[in-house]
Each structure stands twice: as C-alpha cells, then as structure tokens.
Simulated assay, not measured.
Amino acid sequence: MTTTKRTQIGTDSEDTAFTTARPRLFAIAYRMLGTRADTEDVLQDAWMRWHQADQSALQSAEAWLITVVTRLSIDRLRAAKAEREAYGGWWLPEPLVEAESNAPTPETAVELAGDLSVALLWVLERLSPEERAAFLMRQVFDQDYAEIAALLGKSEAACRQMVHRASDRVQQDRPRFDVSDDAHRDLLERFAEASRSGQRDAIRALLADDAHLVGDGGGKVPSFARIIQNAEQITKIYCELVRAMGNVRYQHARVNGEPGLLRYVDEKLESAQSFVIENGRIVGIYVVRNPDKLAHITA
C-alpha cells in the first residue's frame, strides 16, 4: 500500500525526468529482454523505485535510472532463461513493427538507435545476462568501462573481458553486413512478389546457397523443430504455403528498425519476417508466428 501511495504523489519534476529518460530505458530493457511485456514490467518497476528514491542525493537521474533498469533486466532475464529453455520451439524476440510510411518520432528514434535487428537479438540469446548487458552498454550505448563496471559491480578488467568474449561470439555467429535500406527494400519487394505467386525459380535466385530460416511458433501454431539450413528447402516452404493457403499477401514494414515483411493469410496476420542480406542475396530469415508476439501489431 505504501508503494502505491508514493508512486501516486510523485512531483511533476520527478515525472518529467523519468519521461525524458524513458525512450532510452525502453531501448536498454528491450534489447536485454526481447519482449514488450517484460520491458514494460521493468520500466514500471523502475518508475516505482524512482519515486521511492532520495532524488536530492543523486548526481544524475538518467545514470541512476539506467543502472536500475539494467540490473532489473539482468534479474528478469535470469528468471526467463529457464522459461525459454522450455519454450515450444525456437525463441525469437517479439518484433517491434512500424509501417514503412511512418516517419519515426523522436522517442522512437531513440528506441531504435543502434542495432536492434532480430538477427542480433537472436545471437545475444546465447550470452549470459551479464555478458549481454556489458556488450550492449559498450557496443550499442557507448558507455565507458568505468560506467559499466559501476553498473555491474565488477572490475573494469572483468568488464573488458566480458565485452571481448561477447563481441567475438556475436561476430562469429552473425557477421555484420551493411546494406542500404533501398537495396534491402528492393530485394524484399522481389522476394515478396515471387513468394506471393509461388515462383520457385525466382525465390531460389534470391537466396544464398547457405541461407537459413528460423521459425518461432511458440508451441501455439505449427513451426519448424529445427533451423532450416538449405536454400532449396526454404524455397519449397514458401511455394507450398501458397499452394496450401491460397490467399497469401505480403506487406512491407519496418521490423526492429529494418525493412521486413508482414505475411497475411486470408487477410489475417500470420507472421512478421526479418531478413539478413549479404552480397545481394538473403542469407537469413527469421519468422515470428507465435500469435502472442503478433498481437500488438496493427494492420
């Protein structure tokens, strides 16, 4: 009861400070946790702690909030690890989707600043919670090692080692290729048209020989029990969907800050898809079909 009362009587300046920092806090928590619900829960918990804190003693409101949100995210991710190990199939992050035509708001621009791609978050799932935090704070949010050490309660040397290990793992599992939005969108336009009409040769021509596909159905809709690592099989999957479903439509959208596709079957959203492109071909496809992760996406 005490907590509820204190959160209700926060001053305007307290609320303004939190609101100003909120886009950055969302960006940190989402990259740590990969779901909107967990992110919002962490931000709510941080907001309550913010109103309980002696703010007159704080040197920097934003630094304090970043520390609290990061530590809360580490704790929540530790708890989520067991749940994700028991998850029905492969676990992919809940996609953040915007219409291609929408210009990002200043708040959204902060949330999406830096790499937010589904492919990166997929790789980060292999890191420990503290490694993930150290990597993100250094490589995405450009914190210095003294700040990371204070945030994690470790020595600077230990934090440098964590970031180095995490960076090696990320580079090994997901090489970084810079592709312009225009080139990315153009390739997806051709892929969507070929997939919509079931043009086998056209689909195959857009896939690298070693392309892979990861599907997330969450145990609630059919998906793949293994990662598909064969361009011919991926081509067959997209062609068979058209034959089996008939009324398939693709819509362009920004998925986690990058050009992606929403697939509709009989005008019902069936999946959100992200792509990794190298040398003009698709090398990775991440398909989120779990309806719980699609529920927030509007047409």
Rank of each mutant, 00 (worst) to 15 (best):
M137G: 00
P93A: 13
A80I: 00
L92V: 00
E98W: 06
A109F: 12
R78W: 09
L65K: 07
S101A: 14
E131V: 07
E98C: 05
A134S: 11
R138C: 04
A63N: 13
T70H: 07
G89D: 06
L120R: 09
A103R: 14
W122N: 09
A99D: 15
A119R: 10
W122A: 03
R84W: 13
P106Y: 08
F141W: 00
L92D: 08
L127G: 12
E62I: 12
M137I: 08
D142K: 13
L116W: 06
A134Y: 02
G89R: 03
P129I: 08
F135I: 10
E130C: 05
W90T: 03
L112H: 09
A113F: 12
T108N: 10
S73Q: 05
L136N: 04
T105W: 07
F141Q: 10
T108V: 14
E125W: 07
A61N: 12
E107D: 15
A82T: 15
L96F: 13
T70C: 12
A119M: 03
V68Y: 05
A134F: 09
L121I: 14
E94L: 00
Q139C: 11
P93W: 12
I66Q: 09
S117A: 07
R78Y: 04
A80W: 06
S117F: 02
M137R: 14
G114H: 01
L65T: 04
L120K: 11
E111T: 10
L112F: 13
F141V: 12
A99Q: 14
L120N: 03
L120D: 02
E100S: 15
A61E: 07
W91T: 06
A80K: 12
E100N: 13
D115Q: 08
A80V: 02
R78M: 06
W122Q: 05
L72T: 08
A61Q: 05
F135H: 05
E125V: 09
E98D: 13
A79R: 14
D142H: 13
S73V: 08
T105P: 09
A119L: 10
E83G: 13
L65Y: 01
D142L: 12
W90K: 02
L120P: 04
E62N: 13
A103K: 12
L121E: 07
A82E: 15
L127S: 03
L116I: 03
I74C: 06
V123N: 05
E111H: 04
A103V: 01
E83M: 08
P95R: 01
R76Y: 02
E62D: 13
I74A: 11
L120Q: 02
A103D: 10
T105I: 00
L96G: 01
Y87C: 00
F135M: 07
D115K: 04
E85D: 15
W122I: 00
A79M: 08
L136H: 10
E85K: 14
L96E: 03
D115H: 07
Y87E: 02
G89H: 07
W90Y: 12
P95V: 02
R132V: 05
G114C: 10
G114Y: 07
A63K: 09
L65W: 02
E111W: 03
P93I: 00
K81Q: 15
E107M: 04
E111C: 09
A86Y: 11
Q59A: 15
G89F: 02
